[in-house]
Write a protein that binds this DNA or RNA. Structure first.
Lengths: 152, 152
DNA sequence: GAAAAATAGTCAGCCGGCTGATCGTTATTC
DNA sequence: GAATAACGATCAGCCGGCTGACTATTTTTC
């Protein structure tokens, strides 16, 4: 496996780590994609395209993710009075509570890895160089403003 | 984005890198999952469960991936005379040719990243610690034996 | 040799990426 | 002010992960 291309290592590691969370998250009625949205909503009610851009995901994908969060009662969609194309997404109290519990789990489950700072640096570099062509937001604005972030 | 949990950085980077390949691979009639299988078949005809284990994927997922490769004519399934439960998968000449072209692309497209050796070390460490519970093959046997591997 | 357990493969159905197309609403342009 | 362009959201449909359930075929056990 040491001979695998780096891209393949990347996707394999990603899948395995996500899989490790799945049980814990499922018990909370949550998924990985949903958790990201609940985190982004720290910054307050947000439109769907904005959420999609911040999560680096297409709008159609975000639409379905919000469908499921809404079905579970973690989120609500409200029509925007000013721009009637928009549907603003807002976290419910139930959503805030499940998020608080999930983020504690998230930090615990990530495996111990040597050279974690270098890993994070490399990943950020990959994301920046790969996403510049698809998402052009103000650099540095991708993190929610009020996020008291956990960095496992 | 610097405040994101490491797991989220991992999956985001993984998706973006895969996306960068997609165009090139699609033009060849190939997908990322299919490319992995063609690579594994360097070692010669192989059963489907074996391929699934080597790719760190469930047997059902591998079954469908092979369906698509077969549909494109890159692979053939043959009944095993000895064990009639097995269907041995074999690369066709067309599959060998498309693989040769794809692997050249694979090496070119990976973005420049600082500390690449540290990144690879960290990813391997994550994969090993996360996959020990799901796949127990002889340590070190996950790479195809004849693989003249490209390491971008 | 017959019954039970394990194995190889598949089907159905869920989630979450993606593209392409469509619909209603807002902005721009003339 | 009307025609056009751009934008927000969604639908349809593909790929590729996953689980759970099922069939057919060994292999093991008694």
């Amino acid at each position: 496996m040491a001979g695998w291309p780096t891209g393949r290592l990347l996707s394999t590691a990603s899948r395995l780590v996500e899989h490790a969370w799945l049980d814990a998250l499922t018990q909370l009625g949550l998924s990985h994609a949903g958790l990201i949205v609940l985190h982004l909503l720290d910054a307050g009610p947000t439109s769907q395209v904005a959420l999609a851009g911040l999560a680096r995901v297409e709008a159609q994908t975000m639409s379905r993710t919000i469908d499921r969060l809404e079905r579970e009662g973690f989120v609500e969609r409200h029509a925007d009075a000013v721009d009637r194309r928009r549907r603003v997404v807002e976290r419910t109290p139930s959503g805030a509570e499940v998020f608080a519990r999930a983020r504690r789990v998230e930090a615990e489950l990530f495996p111990d890895v040597p050279e974690l700072p270098a890993l994070r640096t490399a990943l950020l570099s990959i994301i920046n160089s790969s996403s510049s062509m698809r998402w052009n937001d103000d650099p540095g604005s991708a993190a929610p403003r009020t996020g008291s972030s956990v960095i496992p």
